[in-house]
Amino acid sequence: MSARPSTLAFLLLGSLLAAFAACFTDAVWLRAERGPELVSMRLLAAQLGLSDLALFTEARYTRHPAQADLHSGFQDHPLALEHFPSGSLMVPRYDGLVREATTPD
């Protein structure tokens, strides 16, 4: 007698669930393995005073989004809307960073 389809389905789902759980175990394992890299990067940032990630190196405002000019999207001339593809991934967007140069309030 062959196995019931539902048994097979439960087996399949069970193994998928196990794989799903294995992802989390693997994540713990990888965290332990790669964690020191993060710590070393934090040390480097502290040592050199780095303020940004080197994710996009093509333009000033994507290389250092935290330190770009406030209007760096248009920095070259008023109609220069956006030059670089990564600008659409890393716009200078300031939630709370918007601060006028002179705010003596």
């Binding site: 070393s40 990067m41 480097l44 994710l55 190196t57």
Partner: peptide, 9 residues
């Protein structure tokens, strides 16, 4: 290992 912070430095 520090590439994410220092690739182009």
């Amino acid at each position: 290992a520090s590439e994410l912070a220092s690739a182009d430095l």
